[in-house]
Amino acid sequence: MSQSGYKVSDLVKAAGVSRQAYYKWLTHEPTVHDIQDQEILKLVKQLEAQHKHCVGYDKMTRLIKQERLSYTVNKKRVMRIMKKHSIKADYRQPKRKRVQEQETYEAQNTLNRQFEQAAANQVWVTDTTEIAYNIRKYKARLHVVLDLYGQYPLSWIITPTETSTGAIKAFQMAKQEAGGLAPLIHTDRGAAYTSKAFNHYLAS
């Protein structure tokens, strides 16, 4: 203590403990339970390193039990030790190649600018656009599904942002209005339309 430049009385006051408690801790002999906890902690750190720091409480308990220690180790004890030493699983998600995912759902331009249609419900086109209101302070997204025959909107919906959920909802409303989906649906290559959810909806 003297080497650090602080008195014991100052340190225990800062820590909020009594001098008696400090000296009791200083001369404390580790119990069997304390020794076991240290052994478990050492195992936890080893297993964390082996499994690249992605082991949760349940799996960690199972792995420690496989070590066949001479005493019982349960999940509650493992949780207490890991929390005490700020050890937790790192569940970072792998980086997704979003560009490649979108390209999977980018079809050829089948419509090829054939905007004149001879019958209803043969070709639907859709798009989403940003709209501003309250002197452009707030913004929202407008989704529209248009039948090229007569070029009238079958459905429209406003959502806070551009999402596949909004695009799907617009088509569900159009399907209900027309009694079914058109055999050809034309979109741009926006994120909502190249999403897995939207394309799975159309495929189903």
Score class of each variant (00 low, 15 high):
54 C>P: 04
185 I>D: 01
35 I>H: 10
144 V>I: 08
54 C>R: 12
155 S>P: 01
44 V>W: 03
13 K>R: 12
200 H>T: 11
16 G>L: 10
60 M>L: 00
2 S>E: 02
60 M>Y: 02
19 R>M: 04
173 M>K: 09
66 Q>L: 13
130 E>A: 09
116 E>W: 04
170 A>T: 07
197 A>W: 10
173 M>I: 09
111 L>V: 01
2 S>Q: 00
67 E>D: 09
57 Y>L: 05
145 V>T: 01
197 A>H: 11
124 W>S: 03
160 P>E: 14
46 Q>D: 06
67 E>P: 03
62 R>M: 15
83 K>L: 10
48 E>T: 03
85 H>S: 09
86 S>Q: 12
175 K>F: 07
200 H>C: 15
79 M>L: 14
125 V>E: 05
70 S>L: 07
119 A>H: 11
130 E>C: 11
27 T>C: 14
96 R>D: 02
16 G>S: 05
26 L>C: 13
106 E>L: 15
91 Y>T: 04
45 K>G: 00
174 A>V: 02
102 Q>F: 15
201 Y>L: 09
53 H>T: 03
172 Q>N: 14
175 K>M: 13
46 Q>S: 06
175 K>G: 09
109 N>D: 13
43 L>Q: 10
114 Q>G: 04
119 A>M: 05
81 I>L: 07
89 A>N: 00
170 A>C: 07
96 R>P: 04
85 H>I: 05
176 Q>T: 13
81 I>T: 05
100 Q>L: 12
62 R>L: 15
193 Y>H: 04
174 A>Q: 00
174 A>D: 02
194 T>I: 12
110 T>S: 09
118 A>H: 07
121 N>E: 04
103 E>V: 14
82 M>W: 04
7 K>L: 05
66 Q>P: 03
158 I>G: 11
12 V>I: 06
45 K>F: 03
67 E>W: 07
10 D>R: 06
174 A>I: 01
181 L>I: 15
63 L>A: 03
23 Y>P: 01
86 S>M: 13
26 L>V: 14
27 T>E: 11
192 A>E: 13
32 V>I: 15
15 A>L: 15
32 V>N: 12
168 I>M: 07
92 R>T: 04
192 A>K: 11
147 D>F: 02
9 S>R: 03
92 R>I: 04
113 R>S: 06
179 G>W: 14
94 P>F: 12
79 M>Y: 05
177 E>G: 08
174 A>F: 01
190 G>V: 02
195 S>W: 03
83 K>C: 11
175 K>P: 05
5 G>W: 00
11 L>Q: 12
140 A>Y: 08
48 E>F: 13
151 Q>P: 01
91 Y>G: 00
70 S>E: 08
39 E>G: 09
119 A>P: 02
79 M>I: 01
104 T>W: 13
111 L>R: 01
161 T>G: 05
127 D>V: 02
